[in-house]
Design a binder for these strands. Structure first.
Lengths: 229, 229
DNA sequence: ACAATTTAAATTGTCAACAATAATGACTTT
DNA sequence: AAAGTCATTATTGTTGACAATTTAAATTGT
């Protein structure tokens, strides 16, 4: 699937890093499970050297926790940590929206609209709804962060925090709820960006994510009553 | 200096990581310079294995950039990247202030006041002024992030962004200016926190950092006229 | 003398073996 | 039978050697 276009030369450590990352995010390496070096090195057919380098990169992404002389464990987010991430997201995506509002061209806004239209069509088919809930929402946020023009912000959100969110969703098998409401909010956000109203765009995005956080916290409260772990 | 209190068992890779990080932040490994594995492994008396793991962790902190088959280079922040970092800081420290205002006890506020008082005394002695400009400012921000209670936010700011800022200061040999004004702003921020006024605390902190960013951008503009690189 | 090509050196990527530490299980003791 | 102790096993930490690639230098040709 990604073998054709001239990618830069990659090392074994780079490949194994990405494979492990997707394996973790997809839940194939379950949260809390141990990262066994001999086992993985046999499974992927490489030696432990590049594998250990990959694990150290995963540690940098906060996807595993390493204890000296014990090894790496896939992180398992508790509710407190999930809320912490949402707080950071709220702040950073607000920033992204403000910047995007200042920089986005008309073409950029059209692309955002088109993305939302695609999502809407997918929602109307019942299969699509699951898709939208899973990935489509992140697509929208992804694109806005890109429009912000802040490369480090993009890296922070898209290369680190979003992976953690995906992991948490797999971990709790919770699909982001309230898709219809979220859809309205997305359109309002694009309105603000189209008007170059940075403050409004920031405000709306922060509210948008704060709502998602509130929904999450409600779920957590209800799960406390009937725990399943 | 750090040999006594029961620290957790550390590996060579951990040690070399911290040594390299401080070497980079202090400028001993200059920005843009190559990270030569054979050279460093001889210098620190270890083999290349743990050294490479440490370098991969430095990559995670964004302190070096690795190119496959070429090696690692100490990052060199250009003005655009510095501004990007200030934008993120503005957003995240605003969040930290808001959270801190909600959680800080009276004792916490007293500690903040004491910290500021210490800084004030140090400013009044001429040697201290240089110190305050260099590190004292970060101390204040450091403590507030701690008070926020958001561990991931702390990690993000204190373990990653602040190191990059130190590096940039060394790189441009620019001391943070306007210490007197900054001092007033610090007190206003503590006032807001003491009043549990999260919105105000966030607003003031964002302004505070936005001012620092503006000063930085002015310096950059003036340096464009008489470049020294 | 300059440019291109070839050769040599240095550096990075990878591997397999050894040492040190932690985890497991068997054994003794009460 | 339960708890503690000791030996065994497995895993992590570290090292040095080899292969692959890049960089630097030297050679050749015009």
């Amino acid at each position: 699937m990604n073998q054709q276009s001239a990618l830069p030369p990659s090392t074994l450590a780079d490949n194994i890093f990405e494979q492990l990352r997707t394996a973790i995010v997809k839940g194939e390496l379950p949260p809390g499970s141990k990262v066994n070096e001999p086992h993985l090195s046999k499974q992927y057919g490489i030696s432990r050297g590049p594998l250990r380098e990959a694990i150290r990169r995963l540690e940098g992404c906060k996807l595993v926790e390493i204890t000296a002389n014990v090894g790496a464990k896939v992180i398992s987010l508790n509710s407190k940590q999930a809320i912490e991430i949402y707080e950071i997201r709220e702040s950073l995506e607000g920033l992204a929206c403000r910047l995007a509002a200042h920089k986005a061209s008309q073409q950029d806004c059209n692309n955002l609209r088109e993305l939302l239209a695609n999502h809407e069509r997918q929602i109307q088919s019942e299969n699509g709804q699951a898709y939208y809930q899973k990935e489509g929402d992140l697509d929208f946020h992804y694109l806005i962060v890109q429009l912000s023009g802040n490369a480090r912000l993009f890296n922070l959100l898209c290369d680190e925090l979003y992976h953690l969110l995906r992991l948490y969703r797999v971990q709790t098998s919770s699909s982001p709820s309230r898709p219809v409401q979220a859809f309205k909010e997305h359109h309002q956000i694009v309105d603000a960006i189209e008007n170059s109203d940075g403050e409004m765009a920031e405000l709306l995005m922060r509210r948008h994510i704060a709502s998602a956080k509130a929904t999450l916290m409600q779920q957590l409260e209800s799960e406390k009553l009937q725990p399943n772990q």
